[in-house]
Design a protein around this nucleic acid. Structure first.
Lengths: 143, 143
DNA sequence: CATACTTGTTTAGCTGGCTAATTGTTTCTA
DNA sequence: TAGAAACAATTAGCCAGCTAAACAAGTATG
């Protein structure tokens, strides 16, 4: 393999895109009183009310510590409610509050849709499909 | 536009890939006593010895605060040296130490090359070129 | 039944990232 | 030339992410 400059590698592009993408996500989420990272958690809880912290950890590719603390902050801000599991006293179950449910709806409408529109701007449908396929391969390669 | 599940958007894939990619970068950089984010700074300083913090900020899509503090840590760990600019007393110039220079070499060899290999595994040359082109478009869209 | 192991969560302490506000220089301009 | 404006860097304080280690509850085993 010929040596190519770092700035022309896929890895370098991922680094740059990651920052830009997260910055934009943060801007959009700020209007909902959320920070990038919290939206995935809320959506996961929405898909499975009463999910445990451990299940959240597994399904999110994020450390248990991060889940514990983020849920703690989401609770402080009134988006979720925690509850010790009665069966297994070790586990903690998490539920969305009314505010949390509304937030989830807004996340899709005001963040994901807008973000996606901007991200894949100036691309044909074929290019978008291709990009998704290739990125799925990248994700598989890295996990 | 038809509604598609969030999990099938390019944006969602970027979120997931960002985490996985950063995690892997961190693993590789740990062997060099560095953390993800520091490698880009060191390489930028390598390209322009005596670069100012302000120039680093502009060239890296990162806030001035982050640059200040990261350079501070890199100095504490012996990778770089700071120096007040004589002409303009406001500015601070940054230089690589011997340790820093060695680190830059290792970053390319032990991080970027390995990371790139893993990232674009199981892809044809055509697919890689295409992926790069599409990702460059995404980057342009987001900045 | 008591001890050892496993599992879920939490604490402490580190990283990069951010914004807002402050400090110190330089430059512009009335 | 003195005061205002612009600019570079820093401080304080917040966020998500991590590992290592502690803690507590459940399970298994001698």
């Amino acid at each position: 393999m010929n040596k190519i400059p770092v700035s022309e590698t896929v890895s370098y592009l991922i680094s740059r895109i990651s920052k830009a993408h997260r910055n934009r996500a943060n801007e959009l989420l700020a209007t909902l009183d959320l920070h990038a990272g919290q939206e995935l958690l809320l959506q996961q809880i929405h898909q499975q009310e009463g999910i445990t912290l451990n299940e959240l950890t597994c399904g999110m590719c994020v450390s248990a510590v991060t889940v514990t603390r983020t849920v703690e902050r989401l609770e402080k801000n009134g988006f979720v409610k925690k509850e010790r599991c009665t069966a297994d006293q070790r586990s903690v179950r998490v539920y969305l509050t009314e505010k949390g449910k509304k937030a989830v709806e807004n996340i899709t409408e005001k963040m994901w849709e807008e973000l996606e529109k901007e991200t894949v701007a100036n691309m044909t449908t074929e290019e978008r499909i291709l990009l998704k396929r290739l990125m799925m391969q990248v994700l598989k390669n890295l996990t």
